[in-house]
Write a protein that binds this DNA or RNA. Structure first.
Lengths: 336, 336
DNA sequence: CTGTTAGCGCTTTCAG
DNA sequence: CTGAAAGCGCTAACAG
């Protein structure tokens, strides 16, 4: 209860609360002398305005929410870095919410965020969410929202992603160039846009290179790493096993790695592996691994920047409604 | 301005605001009938209480702050996961602040947090901070605070870390057992407790195994990866270059990796490398790398649990004032 | 240039 | 069991 507030300052200076308030906000209708006195005392007493009083009064919290499936994943870690940097620059605070890819959590978080706790939201949808009414509701509350990476196509809001189609295409071409005849595509939860887009790139690349598309080579993976491991092992055990694997996300590459190893297959001799991965060190640690690296940090920054444009009521160009940033094919050595 | 609040509900139900408020908090002095009516309407209208009004009134925000050097680092990502999980369980919100290892940022963040924005703080100090007055001030404000990983020894607050001495010892013994005669220790910014503790373990292990400690083999590294790279290259170029490297943090291992490569030295033939790393995949990707993995997720959980004990005014056992969790030496193959 | 006052949405005495 | 009223700390009309 020793907290110093406007009242404390006002009393000590024999001024009214409003004068002190205005002095601190450097209002032009306060004399320089008074301002100095107020500032001096405020500094001396380490005055820090109560953020919640301000938020209540102004109906704005200078806080944004970042809602993501998980953070123990290089992509999201880097994205958060980018987001936090922009937020700090703008004087905003960042709340983190993890959905663990669970629909129920995403739902309750979304519901809660309608309370006015935040001025804006950066969201990457969870893989379990088929239904997105909760997001529509949020949008209807007029809370600015930007999707990043795992976007919700059905909602009209700015989106920032990688060039998923293009990089799916590149990855596949890469495997074909390495001599693969039969390439498996490991797909992340199939209601995610990224999995779909990358799949389309994969298909197109096959077509353009005279390879037949085979349904059996599209492996629908889940969030359960054990299950995925078994699934991949099954694929590798089959009669006409693939000689190339394209993992659409990092943890599927890891599962593939184990699956190959435990099946007595070596990478890249028996099976060539290319994967999305934001682990910059992966190809360093293992030259035989080709990765597609997303500009995660940049994606975070761009998404945040977009959100702040909305918060500042600045217009957003139509071509920026869906920003697609280029990913990079990272290949340490040619392993022909 | 379409937000539904207590007034809205009260009006529609011909009840007073206070009755509605009490009904929603399930107060025993409200009739079951009224409660049901209120709850029903609240649900129908998607009522969400304004968090800032509550925080202002109750002088408590159900929010904690996590202040860390960076998030694009597996240790902190995992720690955040642990923290967030506990927080969500307790119905708390999590604010993230990154210091980028800069003292000035840590200072201004600490200052701000004295405003009452959060009920408690989880902090990992930045490597640039020699001075910790700002943290003392925070403590004097009686804001519960728990240090994790990079702790501040000088402040009397609960701490959660790994067994840094022990694992420094283990890592060194490991290198000695691999046959190293001359082991370099790459130390992170020297005012960090973790670097010191690990160094002590290193020294002790040398002593216990009849190796002389050489000052020149303790390399004081910085936060600048380029600089570290050059530093390590210099060490490797010297006349009596080390045949073993113990990297006290992950990014120093990566720098070593590059430095060895570019010096024409191979790992582990010429130089054995052991490093702290929370990249579970590192030894998988490269079997020659031995890592010490911290239980990052657990550290986050324990630190958060401790903080909530403080928030709930529960006593903390003296032996828990500094929790040291065991790290694991992760070694894929014996590379003798 | 400064002060008075109302009110943001909520909880919580205090009255009935 | 329900209502009236005060007040958390701050901002912003409105007065002077």
């Amino acid at each position: 209860m020793d907290s110093v507030n406007l009242k404390t300052l006002a009393k000590k200076l024999n001024l009214s609360i409003s004068t002190v308030s205005r002095a601190l906000r450097d209002s032009h209708e306060i004399s320089v002398k008074t301002k100095q006195k107020v500032l001096a005392l405020a500094k001396a007493l380490n005055y820090e305005p109560n953020p919640y009083a301000g938020s209540l009064r102004k109906q704005a919290s200078r806080t944004i929410a970042v809602v993501i499936p998980e953070v123990a994943n290089n992509f999201f870690s880097l994205a958060i870095s980018g987001i936090e940097e922009i937020a700090q620059l703008k004087g905003y605070h960042v709340l983190i919410y993890l959905t663990h890819d669970r629909y129920d959590l995403e739902l309750s978080i979304a519901r809660h965020l309608a309370s006015g706790r935040v001025d804006g939201i950066l969201l990457s949808v969870s893989s379990e969410s088929n239904d997105f009414l909760h997001l529509v509701e949020l949008k209807n509350k007029n809370i600015p929202m930007v999707f990043f990476d795992r976007v919700c196509e059905e909602i009209d809001a700015p989106k920032v992603t990688t060039d998923d189609f293009e990089s799916g295409y590149q990855a596949t071409v890469h495997l074909i160039e390495m001599g693969c005849k039969s390439i498996a595509y490991l797909m992340i939860a199939k209601n995610l846009s990224i999995g779909q887009k990358r799949l389309e790139g994969y298909k197109e690349a096959l077509k353009d290179n005279g390879h037949d598309f085979e349904e059996r080579l599209v492996i629908n993976c889940s969030n359960d790493k054990e299950v995925n491991y078994e699934l991949i092992k099954g694929v590798l055990a089959g009669a006409n096993r693939p000689d190339g694997i394209f993992a659409s996300v990092e943890h599927l590459a890891i599962a593939s790695y184990y699956a190959c190893k435990d099946s007595g297959l070596s990478i890249p001799e028996d099976v060539k592996l290319v994967s999305f991965s934001n682990l910059e060190t992966a190809p360093l640690l293992n030259p035989s691994l080709t990765t597609i690296t997303q500009p995660a940090y940049l994606i975070g920054k761009e998404a945040a920047t977009m959100l702040f444009r909305m918060l500042e009521k600045k217009p957003i160009n139509i071509e920026d409604q869906h920003l697609e940033l280029k990913s990079m094919l990272f290949q340490r050595e040619s392993t022909a």
